[in-house]
């Protein structure tokens, strides 16, 4: 385990960036994904169409291609941002499509009568979604949403090849310098990812239990 000498800080830094990517992209994806899901069930045909196009583009594009678009093509089109922002942007563009689909399945699981009742007391579409449909949809989607976000946590490793020194990038640096300890290095980093993902599953389980409809 000599690779740990003087490198513990580096490893923690790597995982810290992974967590930053994960949390920021997670929040942005949930916000954008929720708007997309709302657009998909909205009464405005243009919004519905735009959401359908968005979801089919980004759900069917490999994440690597989205990263290449944001990091390589973007700057050439004059869309350049700090590296962390680009990383969060790429992750969000991709993940929000999956969030939107998970939410849409949740919205569809809310009985239509709930929305009708909400509208019949005079709530606008936005209020109806916010107050009645989304809170119930969210409960139904915690398990699929947790899967989407866990996949996203692991997907942050794609950023390693795009200038972000997160955990996987750090691992590659360490294996290159300590080729004789490859296996141990791999196990340490795998353990780090397992801890992150387990924490997420734990949180999802807690939330599911707390939010269960009485």
């Amino acid at each position: 385990m000599t690779f740990l000498d003087g490198n513990v800080g580096l490893i923690l830094q790597g995982f810290w960036l992974t967590i930053q990517l994960l949390v920021l992209s997670g929040i942005c994806s949930i916000v954008l994904g929720t708007l997309l899901a709302a657009a998909r069930v909205s009464p405005v045909p243009l919004l519905r169409g735009a959401a359908v196009v968005y979801v089919s583009i980004f759900r069917n594009t490999p994440l690597l291609v989205v990263f290449i678009f944001v990091f390589i093509a973007g700057p050439r089109l004059g869309l350049n941002y700090p590296f962390l922002v680009k990383g969060v942007l790429a992750m969000t563009l991709y993940t929000s499509a999956f969030v939107a689909e998970a939410l849409r399945s949740g919205i569809n699981s809310v009985p239509v009568g709930q929305a009708e009742a909400a509208r019949s007391i005079g709530l606008t579409f936005g209020q109806c979604m916010r107050e009645v449909v989304m809170p119930q949809a969210l409960r139904a989607v915690i398990p699929p949403m947790a899967s989407v976000l866990i996949a996203m946590a692991k997907n942050t490793s794609v950023a390693a090849a795009f200038g972000l020194a997160e955990a996987t990038a750090t691992m590659r640096g360490l294996t290159n310098n300590n080729a004789n300890e490859r296996l141990m290095i791999f196990l340490v980093f795998a353990l780090g990812y397992i801890v992150i993902v387990e924490l997420m599953s734990f949180a999802a389980n807690r939330l599911e239990r707390r939010w269960r409809v009485a």
Binding site: P111, A118, R119
Partner: peptide, 24 residues
């Protein structure tokens, strides 16, 4: 559609066969 319709619905109470009480 829109706000005006929501305003009208607020003045028309409705009771459904399946109650549709907000479950959450």
């Amino acid at each position: 559609e829109g706000k005006a319709l929501a305003g009208l619905r607020a003045d028309v109470g409705m009771v459904f066969q399946s109650f549709n009480i907000f479950a959450h």
